[in-house]
């Protein structure tokens, strides 16, 4: 059963929560704050969460969105959970590479590969 709030589609694949961003652009500060709050609530409600963020729809992403992901990654760690990212298109992956955040996050080419790696 999928749940959709604040431009996110959240489903569960086995033990893993899979989040898809509905928006093509994750640029807007207010939207980013809302997404961050919703993901933070999810992580807080599921100690030890296994969380996969699927970026297949995302075509644009700002440094504010990167900041939200970093904050989320910290929270997941604090909650002894695991976070993975997948389906990041090359243009967006370049943003991760430039900022060296590809070293901070575990990034997989596909959701299937990420799910298998949990």
């Amino acid at each position: 059963m999928a749940e959709t709030k604040a431009n996110l589609k959240i489903t569960k694949e086995g033990q893993v929560y899979v989040v898809e961003f509905e928006d093509r652009k994750i640029l807007d500060e207010l939207a980013i704050t809302q997404i961050g709050e919703q993901l933070s609530e999810l992580v807080a409600s599921e100690p030890g969460i296994r969380l996969l963020l699927n970026f297949k729809n995302v075509e644009h992403l700002s440094s504010a969105a990167l900041g939200m992901l970093i904050t989320l990654e910290k929270q997941v760690k604090e909650e002894r959970g695991r976070l993975k990212l997948s389906n990041i298109r090359p243009q967006i992956f370049e943003v991760f590479k430039i900022t060296r955040l590809n070293r901070l996050f575990e990034i997989h080419d596909t959701a299937e590969a990420a799910l298998q790696a949990f």
Partner: peptide, 21 residues
């Protein structure tokens, strides 16, 4: 520099770097 090891996990400070890139 936001990519220095001590700053890599800070949530801000990447805007100028991205513009320059």
């Amino acid at each position: 520099d936001p990519t220095s090891p001590s700053r890599l996990s800070l949530p801000n400070g990447r805007g100028i770097m991205l513009m320059r890139a």
